[in-house]
Computed example of a mutant assay.
Amino acid sequence: MSSPTGNGDQQPLGDPAGATPGTTAVVHPPEVTLRTITLVRWGVLAWVVVLVVLLAVPGLRTGERDWWVWVPVAGIVGGVLGYAYLRRGKGNAADA
């Protein structure tokens, strides 16, 4: 991927103190203490809540919105697959 200037050089990320012009700053993202599998659990729970609301309020799934029920169903299925994948120790997150 090329830089905005088109010359392939990396662009500086701001002007950190003491950096020389034309160099790139090393950015270290903060460490995330949230485990990935916990995030997946909360995501599945959120999709379950959306599904319950859609099933409880008939006006949300009538007419041209009859497909809305399948959105949280797909989210739940995807989340469960992701959960199973992480429980088996796969994925790129350490200690997922």
Rank of each mutant, 00 (worst) to 15 (best):
M1K: 11
M1T: 13
M1V: 13
M1Y: 14
M1H: 13
M1A: 12
S2G: 12
S2L: 15
S2E: 12
S3R: 08
P4Y: 04
T5Y: 11
G6I: 09
G6E: 11
G6F: 11
N7M: 08
G8N: 13
G8M: 12
D9Y: 14
D9A: 14
D9F: 14
Q11P: 01
Q11S: 10
Q11A: 10
P12L: 03
G14E: 06
G14H: 06
G14W: 04
D15G: 08
P16I: 05
A17L: 06
A17T: 05
G18T: 07
A19M: 10
T20S: 14
T20H: 11
T20F: 09
P21R: 08
G22S: 06
G22F: 02
T23P: 03
T23Y: 03
T23V: 05
T24D: 04
T24V: 13
A25G: 05
V26A: 05
V26L: 05
V27F: 13
H28R: 04
H28A: 01
H28L: 01
P29N: 01
P29T: 00
P30G: 00
E31K: 07
E31N: 03
V32S: 00
V32D: 01
T33D: 07
L34R: 09
R35K: 15
T36E: 08
T36R: 05
I37R: 02
I37F: 01
I37P: 01
T38E: 15
L39Q: 02
L39G: 02
V40T: 02
W42M: 15
W42A: 15
G43Y: 00
V44K: 01
V44I: 08
V44T: 06
L45E: 14
V48K: 06
V48Q: 07
V49D: 09
V49P: 00
L51Y: 03
L51E: 08
V52N: 01
V52L: 11
V53M: 06
L54P: 00
L55A: 11
A56Q: 03
A56K: 03
A56P: 01
A56Y: 02
V57L: 07
V57K: 01
P58E: 05
P58F: 02
G59W: 04
G59H: 06
G59I: 06
L60C: 07
R61L: 07
R61P: 03
G63K: 07
E64R: 13
E64P: 09
E64W: 13
R65A: 15
R65C: 10
R65E: 10
D66K: 11
D66L: 09
D66E: 14
D66Y: 08
D66Q: 13
W68N: 07
W68Q: 11
W68D: 08
V69G: 03
W70F: 10
W70H: 07
P72K: 08
P72C: 15
V73T: 12
V73I: 15
A74V: 09
A74D: 09
A74E: 09
G75T: 07
I76N: 12
I76C: 14
I76V: 15
I76G: 13
V77H: 09
V77F: 09
G78N: 15
G79Y: 02
V80G: 14
L81C: 12
L81E: 10
L81Y: 06
G82N: 10
G82A: 15
A84D: 11
A84I: 12
Y85F: 14
Y85C: 05
Y85K: 08
L86P: 04
G89F: 00
K90P: 00
K90T: 06
G91P: 15
G91I: 08
N92G: 09
A94E: 14
D95M: 05
A96R: 03
